[in-house]
Design a protein around this nucleic acid. Structure first.
Length: 356
DNA sequence: TATCCGTGGTG
DNA sequence: TCACCAAGGAT
């Protein structure tokens, strides 16, 4: 009974706050187009709004409908996704579009269970689509919501742990209002990203401040409980950067794993550079060790040691399957991971174009 | 179930 | 420079 009243206060204040202070003009708002809502939700997974906006615009322009996306080659999808990270999302996006076209006549299923079974759509994303596209009652639980709930209800425990996450899901379910589910759901995310921020939350502007346990106890800085610290493993890798002055030699990465499906530079050793060049129809002219660059993933610190190999390519050389000679001018639009993209752009500037 | 998956913002 | 993490999902 008390729980119900608390839930009503929570949702009522949040909905009212969202109407006056929430975000209403993001590119994927003010539509019930499930395709666009889905696309935005996938891009927004672990990714901030400001980063997503330009990618979302390019996708909508290039693929106005889910059929257009389903019909596109995966390589094209990856090119547009390059730089956004978590590339499994792009592969799942493409597979999901094809599944919806093939199995659902290009219309998104309207029930939560069917949505959850589609590639790349988990419980929270399925709920967001249900709410914003269909107006259905379903709880989301992203990083913003976890933070708001952990503070407001004083939930101890790291939200990434299964036990704490279960508590948060139950809470999210309990709090759902009977009406205005869209404003409620959007309000939860807006509050988390603009008021109940990770550091220095603006509690004076919060519609929940009177009932927020973290604020009442002065524990805003301690909740939600931070991830347990662990040292990231570190790895060195030598990347071979073959160029004949006009082109770079790129390798298609395996479909799963780091940078899955993208083009990248082949791993190798300095000692094998000459043999490597010969195997690709080139003669090694000069090898130059470039300054190393560090790249931190969510689970790994990679120390990249680039080896610039200037080669003489045989005329009309064609790359083998899985390999690709990329013209210097094609670098900007290729499906390259960000550090490789940056590296190639840097090198390109320092290499005078050669003529045959 | 804990780990694997990118990148950029922020202080 | 560095830690921490953001509209999470798959395995």
């Amino acid at each position: 009974m008390r729980e119900n009243r608390s839930a009503r206060v929570f949702s009522t204040r949040l909905i009212d706050w969202q109407r006056h202070h929430g975000r209403h003009d993001l590119p994927w708002q003010n539509t019930r187009d499930a395709y666009r809502i889905w696309l935005s939700e996938i891009m927004l997974q672990q990714t901030q709004v400001g980063t997503v906006i330009p990618y979302y615009a390019r996708f909508v322009e290039c693929f106005p409908t889910i059929e257009a996306l389903a019909l596109a080659p995966l390589a094209t999808v990856l090119e547009l996704w390059a730089g956004l990270g978590y590339y499994a999302r792009a592969r799942n996006l493409h597979r999901c579009a094809q599944a919806i076209v093939a199995d659902y006549r290009a219309e998104f299923p309207r029930d939560l269970q069917s949505l959850c079974e589609l590639p790349g759509i988990g419980r929270s994303t399925a709920a967001a689509i249900s709410v914003f596209a269909f107006g259905h009652r379903a709880p989301i639980l992203d990083g913003n919501v976890k933070r708001v709930l952990a503070r407001c209800f004083g939930i101890d425990g790291f939200p990434g742990s299964a036990a704490t996450e279960n508590v948060l899901w139950s809470l999210a379910e309990t709090l759902l209002p009977a009406k205005h589910i869209e404003a409620y759901t959007q309000g939860l995310m807006d509050l988390g990203s603009t008021v109940c921020t990770r550091r220095k939350p603006s509690c004076e502007a919060c519609p929940l401040h009177a009932m927020c346990i973290a604020r009442l106890d002065g524990r805003q800085a301690e909740l939600p409980v931070a991830r347990p610290v662990k040292v990231l493993p570190e790895r060195d890798t030598t990347l071979l950067l073959l160029t004949d002055g006009n082109r770079f030699l790129l390798e298609r990465r395996p479909p799963v794993g780091i940078w899955g499906g993208l083009l990248s530079l082949p791993e190798g050793t300095g000692a094998g550079a000459s043999e490597f060049a010969r195997r690709h129809g080139c003669r090694l002219l000069e090898a130059q060790v470039l300054p190393s660059l560090k790249h931190t993933f969510s689970h790994l610190r990679l120390n990249i040691l680039p080896l610039l190999c200037t080669v003489k390519a045989t005329p009309h050389l064609v790359a083998e399957a899985g390999w690709q000679w990329l013209e210097h001018g094609e670098v900007d639009t290729a499906a390259l991971p960000t550090p490789i993209m940056r590296l190639l752009k840097t090198i390109r500037k320092s290499i005078p174009p050669t003529r045959d």
